[in-house]
């Protein structure tokens, strides 16, 4: 299987054909077509029809296609899920305001139904719950581990700070705990964890600083709202030369050990176990991607 990463997931407003039709050219790892906040209530139907057609006919190249639908408690929820699954080429659904495992289960049930109805490979459509309330943060492990369809969870900073009754700052101290909690839950559930957007598209330094922070916390990627934010984030996530060399040593040693039937191996004096090997494979994959860019 091709190495897939989600360093960047590019938001695109759902009712804007000019931007939707260009989604795959900016070099983001994934696109996030949005039916929620960027679409006015009286245009939800239009955006849904448009996104469904884009996914059905546009044949995007080498990019993960995800759609942020409207929350469960809105009248659009069922239609959103149905229409975008009917489009046939969807990779994942981002579920906003996931407050509990129950919410995920509700979406899962719908996906099961429509996958069957539209003859999509069962289980192929993933779920990305979005943690953006206090209760969601508290329940984040239950959410992250509530379905086999989940392969990433994400945090939504704007709504979360609103829910906390504080304002979102550039430094982000107010959501530091929440970020750490969400990362920990994701790691415990063994899924990717995607950070919230950085709103000031003109502040590249601020973006880089924040990306360094969230990378150090354990996030595997970040949502972006402007194509200009993609490169700086990929650069932060790029492994160092030393990391890449280490990764290839680990992979080689592992394969050699496997061939020779040895169980225990060490690289640079340290034991290599499956989690370390997984990290090495991830770094090697990243290095390959960076070479392509």
């Amino acid at each position: 299987m091709k190495f897939r990463t989600r360093r960047t997931m590019l938001y695109i407003p759902g009712n804007n054909p000019g931007m939707l039709q260009l989604a795959d050219i900016f070099g983001a790892d994934a696109v996030l077509f949005d039916l929620e906040d960027s679409v006015a209530p009286n245009e939800k139907d239009a955006a849904r029809d448009l996104i469904a057609n884009m996914i059905r006919f546009r044949e995007y190249e080498n990019i993960e296609i995800t759609v942020r639908i409207n929350p469960i408690d809105t009248p659009y929820f069922d239609r959103d899920v149905k229409e975008i699954i009917a489009s046939g080429n969807l990779d994942a659904i981002r579920l906003p305001k996931a407050n509990s495992a129950k919410d995920v289960k509700a979406l899962e049930k719908l996906i099961n139904k429509y996958e069957e109805e539209f003859k999509i490979e069962p289980g192929s459509i993933k779920i990305h719950p979005m943690i953006e309330t206090a209760i969601g943060v508290i329940q984040s492990y239950e959410i992250a581990s509530s379905s086999d369809r989940i392969d990433a969870i994400t945090i939504g900073g704007q709504d979360l700070t609103a829910n906390m009754g504080v304002s979102k700052t550039k430094e982000g101290k107010e959501i530091l705990w929440a970020r750490s909690q969400v990362v920990m839950s994701a790691k415990a559930a063994n899924v990717d964890v995607i950070d919230t957007i950085f709103a000031d598209i003109n502040d590249e330094e601020g973006l880089i600083e924040e990306t360094r922070l969230i990378k150090s916390l354990g996030f595997t990627g970040k949502a972006v709202i402007n194509p200009r934010q993609i490169k700086p984030i990929h650069a932060v996530f790029a492994p160092s030369k030393d990391e890449v060399e280490w990764a290839f040593e680990v992979i080689d040693a592992y394969e050699k050990a496997l061939k020779e039937g040895r169980g225990v191996i060490a690289v640079r004096g340290k034991m290599i176990d499956p989690p370390v090997r997984k990290r090495a494979q991830r770094i090697a994959g990243m290095a390959y991607l960076m070479e392509q860019e």
Binding site: P17, Q21, D45, A46, D49, L50, A52, N53, M54, R56, F57, R58
Partner: peptide, 12 residues
Amino acid sequence: ALNLTIKARLKT
């Protein structure tokens, strides 16, 4: 507009 957009708008 691309054809797919024309179709989508007409559907809506």
